[in-house]
C-alpha cells in the first residue's frame, strides 16, 4: 500500500499521500449493492458465501444504493430492468464502480440474436469499469474482476482524470 514502508520506527505516525490513503480506503471496503438479476446472481451469491468469502476483500452487501460503492450487474438485463438499473445507478453516491458480470450483461449473451427483450450490454446504459466474461463466470473469475477493479482504484488520482 505504500503505507507501512514509510512508517517511523518508534511512533504511531504513518506518512502517506492523501491520494494513497483515499484510494486504499476506497478499494479496501467496496460495499456492494445487494442486487442480482439471473443465473449469474447465484454465482455471485456463492462468491459472497463462506467458501469464496467476498468479505475478506471488504465487499459486504448493502441493501440501499445510497450506501453502496459498487454494483455488480450479475445477469440478464431486460429492457424493463435497464430503466430501473439506470435509476439505481443514479441513486448511488460518487465514487461508484460497476462490474459487469457474465456474457448477458457484457453483450446480451445467449439472447444476443433473438432476445427482443434483452439489453445487449449494460454499457449501453451505464459506464462499466470491469467486464467479467463467462456464462456464468466462476466465483474465481468474479474475484479476479474485483482485484482488477481494486488495481484500477489504486491508481486513481484526485487531480488527474482517470478513465
Amino acid at each position: 500500500m505504500g503505507l507501512l514502508d514509510k512508517e517511523f520506527s518508534e511512533s504511531n505516525i504513518v506518512i502517506a499521500t492523501a491520494e494513497d490513503i483515499f484510494n486504499w480506503a476506497r478499494l479496501s471496503s467496496l460495499w456492494q449493492l445487494s442486487f442480482g438479476l439471473a443465473c449469474c446472481a447465484i454465482e455471485m451469491m456463492a462468491t459472497s458465501a463462506s467458501h469464496y468469502d467476498f468479505d475478506r476483500f471488504g465487499v459486504i452487501p448493502r441493501p440501499s444504493p445510497r450506501q453502496a460503492d459498487i454494483i455488480i450487474i450479475s445477469g440478464t438485463v431486460t429492457l424493463k430492468m435497464a430503466t430501473r438499473i439506470k435509476r439505481i445507478y443514479e441513486q448511488m453516491p460518487d465514487p461508484k464502480y460497476i462490474i459487469s458480470m457474465g456474457s448477458c450483461s457484457n453483450c446480451g449473451g445467449p439472447y444476443w440474436e433473438h432476445g427482443y427483450h434483452v439489453l445487449k450490454g449494460i454499457d449501453r446504459v451505464i459506464p462499466v469499469d470491469v467486464y467479467v466474461p463467462g456464462c456464468p463466470p466462476r466465483p474465481e473469475a468474479l474475484l479476479e474482476g474485483l482485484l482488477k477493479l481494486q488495481d484500477k482504484i489504486r491508481n486513481e488520482s484526485l487531480v488527474k482524470k482517470t478513465a
Partner: peptide, 11 residues
C-alpha cells in the same frame, strides 16, 4: 423494434 426508450435493441 430498433429502439426502446432510447436504448438500442438489436445486437
Amino acid at each position: 423494434p430498433e429502439f426502446y426508450l432510447g436504448m438500442k435493441v438489436p445486437y
